[in-house]
Computed example of a mutant assay.
Amino acid sequence: MACITLSGFPCSGKTTRSLEIRKYLEQRLGSPDYTGDNLKVEIVSDDNLNLERSVYDESRSEKPARSALFTAVKRLLGMDTIVIIDGPNYIKGFRYQIYCAAREVGVRTCTAHIVATPEMCRNRNASRDPGSKYLDETLENLLVRYEEPSSTVRWDTPLFVIPWDEEIPGDAIFQAVTSGVKKPPNQACGHPTTNIPQISVPPKDALQTLEQTTNTVANLIMSAQSSGTVLGGPLIVALPSSSTRIEIILPNRTLTLSELQRHKRHFVTIHKKAISTGMAGRAEMNWTEETVAQKFASHLEENLR
């Protein structure tokens, strides 16, 4: 039926708000005035998936945790369930992924931005039990990396901003998840229609784009390290031939050129094979510089140690 994505700083009060939203929705759904479908409300969170706060200490543990959350959400998405996603959801790409999964099964979506000041979040974290708190450096890293939801992008809309000192907009959220506009999957996420084959011939310049873009990303990482811009943590890479900006989470150490080149060759080999066999059509990758750069960034995050 619907998917409500909560987003906010760590310790901003998302769990409290998710419980308030669930309580409000269940009251409205159980009211004699409600004559719609019989719906249930489920919360998916780090806590009920037994994900410790320490998973956010490193990208290599955060990625599987995010994948577990996403899998749990997809399992619950359906016409008889309103799913509330109680997690940081601080990366806009992850929120977009959730949005597409929800549209794929034909359910409505909305986003709730839970607002609190960084200082409030620090104080709340400090007062938590050791097993439920973030390391100070992890908390600061997440605060810096947070990508705020925006009402100007389709995957964050409708967007409800809920400051720490205000009540939840219960009625507006209820209307959004029970009678809001539904968009078909192809309109929402750019999926091909049923008339278009899923596998298409790769563009002629696919191999050139693959080589040039991966070289560019590797060189930009080395340049950032040489200039002292970054040594571990998030790095924003701006591709010189476009306005595209890619975030890469690097390990907390100095990377060598030979190491980057090794991972580049591995990445290129995998996709070159796909090109040569004709199995790398636009359904798998659209072969723009931006897409190749994003794929390569994910490859580095998963494989660098």
Rank of each mutant, 00 (worst) to 15 (best):
R154F: 06
P149A: 05
S151N: 15
W155C: 10
R124D: 00
K133E: 08
S127K: 07
N125I: 04
L143P: 07
E147T: 12
R145C: 14
S151F: 03
N125F: 05
L142A: 12
A126G: 02
R145Q: 10
S150T: 14
E147Y: 05
D136R: 13
D136Y: 03
S127L: 05
E137D: 15
S127T: 12
R124T: 07
L142C: 05
L135C: 06
R154T: 12
D129I: 05
S150M: 09
S127E: 13
A126V: 06
E140P: 07
E137C: 14
S127D: 12
K133A: 11
D136T: 11
P130M: 04
S151R: 15
N123P: 00
V153M: 06
G131W: 01
V153Y: 02
L143Y: 14
T138Y: 00
L135I: 03
S150H: 02
N141C: 08
E137Q: 13
Y146P: 09
V153F: 06
A126P: 01
S151H: 14
N141I: 01
S151Y: 03
W155G: 07
A126L: 05
L142E: 07
W155I: 03
K133W: 03
E140D: 13
T138P: 01
N123C: 06
P130I: 04
Y134H: 06
C121G: 06
N141V: 01
A126Y: 02
Y146H: 13
N141Q: 09
C121I: 04
E137P: 08
D129C: 06
R145I: 08
S132M: 00
E137K: 14
D136H: 07
E148N: 12
L143H: 13
E140V: 10
R124V: 00
Y146R: 12
P130N: 05
R124P: 00
V144Q: 15
A126T: 05
V144K: 15
A126I: 04
E137F: 15
L139C: 05
E140G: 03
N141R: 15
E140A: 15
E148L: 10
Y134D: 01
Y146Q: 10
V144N: 12
T138C: 12
L139V: 04
N125Q: 14
S150C: 09
E137V: 11
T138H: 12
S127N: 15
S132N: 10
E148A: 08
G131R: 06
C121D: 06
L143V: 09
V144G: 14
